[in-house]
Write a protein that binds this DNA or RNA. Structure first.
Lengths: 249, 249
DNA sequence: CGGGTTTTTGCGTTTAATTGCGGTATTTCG
DNA sequence: CGAAATACCGCAATTAAACGCAAAAACCCG
């Protein structure tokens, strides 16, 4: 048995049972305990398991280490997601775009929430599917491999036929003058339709994207009902939006 | 034996068994270990395999950790997938259901294949998305969390409007008398539509599901064009199907 | 067809990786 | 505390990988 193969096997065991015993493994795979120990050591060095006396534990319980560069903005996105979740109520029809902020929000949905979520974003849908009481509606069409979201006329037509209570938009650029702008033509078409269809539009944006502009226009600022960033609502760079009657969270 | 031929052979072995040993390969193909090693190196550079001390592992093996009980039937499913892939040609419109066998097939698609894949299965879609030259069309509707596939009238209506060249069905139960049967009403509706829409219907089933029956009927045996199992086509339990004019692979 | 060039392959040698073992230190638990 | 289990260390044997080189095969092109 190859070393990596063995380690994969061990990892699989750990993830399934949350623990492994060196003694069991060595008789199972038929190698010496030293070998097992060295394997566990390596896996531990890579952060895949937590090594303990007599075996190893799943590291997922100790929570994982993410790509360190993204951790920064991920914190901000979690704050945004937190605020966004507070807008949700049982029974709502919720339409969401794609993007990492939306995914963070999906992860943060309270488990007892009962609502219907509609989206064409694959990563978002995957998260929604994990929740026990959420009904998930997938918008179909051609998949854009870049943005991992369905795009095209079918998707737009479908959106036009629904009337969600609220729509959460992950935003690439927002500016008081130019409104929401983006850089992918097909995604823009989709977002336009989403905004038109929804009773209420919530715009999620990390502060570094506020007051920036992208080439393609999605909508004017006055279409936005609520703007959420990681900053405090009183923050000066958000005042132009507040002045235009947008609720800032 | 030509170099490319050898590499194709190796790749097939890797995908089928999840691993290869250099030592075995060299005696099998009758070339020196160096040659094998150089082949593995090239395949590894292209990302087709993961090279390890003593051989190589399937790259798909690495990404995921699967339930270990399922490893068993996974082997069989890989064999089925292998056969299924041989039916594909450039330019085809391919409709697929969900299920683990379909996912195995998705993983095994040759990277140079250029085709359009249509499905409502989230796991399958995720695999298709990884391929460089495959266009992916997602069928939207309500998501069944059980089967991780979109179900409902919208999905069915959409399927009725397309005419795929070929349709691959992961099957829960198939019997010469009763045809294909299943246990999820919504999924059955979907499969019915898929079968009606497609020019050619390919049924993928591991042998233990052949000659079994589930409560809800999908279609009669005569709707099936090709039946693929992990067994040899001459296998006795497949003869009833062959006798009915079904091509057995 | 023939000569030159590139690719591929095998071999010997050197280098590195992997593994098991004996001995000793450390932890665990009654 | 003391015994049993486990971990750690260094070593040596086996095995595989890497490297350079030369023979062989394939290829190209006039």
């Amino acid at each position: 048995m190859l070393k990596k193969e063995r380690q994969a096997y061990i990892l699989q065991k750990v993830n399934l049972h949350n623990k492994v015993l060196s003694s069991l493994l060595c008789s199972e795979i038929n190698v010496s305990e030293d070998t097992i120990r060295r394997d566990l050591q390596e896996l531990a060095d890579e952060g895949k398991v937590i090594k303990v006396h007599g075996g190893a534990l799943s590291s997922s319980f100790y929570e994982v280490s993410l790509p360190p560069a993204a951790v920064y903005s991920q914190q901000k996105k979690k704050i945004i997601a937190q605020k966004a979740v507070s807008l949700l109520e049982d029974g709502m029809f919720v339409l969401t775009s794609g993007g990492t902020t939306i995914v963070e929000m999906a992860r943060m949905l309270p488990t007892q929430l009962r609502a219907t979520f509609i989206s064409g974003s694959i990563p978002a849908i995957l998260e929604y599917m994990h929740h026990p009481h959420i009904e998930v509606i997938l918008i179909g069409d051609k998949i854009s491999k870049n943005s991992k979201i369905t795009v095209g006329s079918e998707a737009i037509a479908k959106i036009k036929h629904i009337k969600p209570d609220i729509c959460f938009l992950g935003t690439n650029a927002i500016d008081p003058e130019q409104g929401i702008t983006d850089n992918d033509w097909e995604v823009v078409q989709l977002k336009k339709a989403m905004i038109e269809a929804s009773r209420k539009v919530v715009c999620l944006s990390i502060a570094e994207k506020v007051n920036t502009i992208q080439p393609i226009k999605v909508c004017d600022t006055d279409k936005i009902d609520i703007l959420i960033t990681e900053l405090a609502p009183e923050s000066p760079q958000l005042q132009p939006f507040a002045a235009m009657g947008i609720r800032v969270l």
